[in-house]
């Protein structure tokens, strides 16, 4: 994971509804609606306030996740970011 950086697609932003165990978002640009797991929602909330590098996101996850998580924050971040990218919610900033 180099120093590449992520951002939310488009400039229109997201609308949120937080039910604790599940978080619903509406992407104003694409018009898509998703139901997120709280961890993914935390990552996305961080990205909504501004572009972040992989390192930033992994450290954010390690704060949220218990000391000996089932899966290391690194792998967690990769799964979450990969899925958010496939759904056109976030994208890599073209260097």
């Amino acid at each position: 994971m180099s120093d590449r950086r992520w951002q939310v697609c488009g400039r229109a932003g997201l609308a949120w509804v937080d039910w604790g165990g599940e978080v619903a978002i509406y992407h104003r640009g694409s018009g898509d609606t998703h139901l997120l797991d709280p961890l993914a929602a935390e990552l996305l909330r961080a990205l909504e306030s501004g572009p972040r590098s992989d390192a930033d996101l992994v450290s954010l996850l390690s704060e949220l996740v218990s000391p000996e998580p089932e899966r290391p924050p690194q792998a967690l971040a990769e799964t979450i970011l990969g899925e958010l990218k496939r759904l056109n919610i976030i994208e890599l900033i073209e260097s």
């Binding site: 961890l39 993914a40 218990s66 924050p73 799964t79 979450i80």
Partner: peptide
């Protein structure tokens, strides 16, 4: 969290 979010 237990950090097991397999389905983000």
């Amino acid at each position: 969290l237990k950090g097991a979010a397999l389905t983000p």
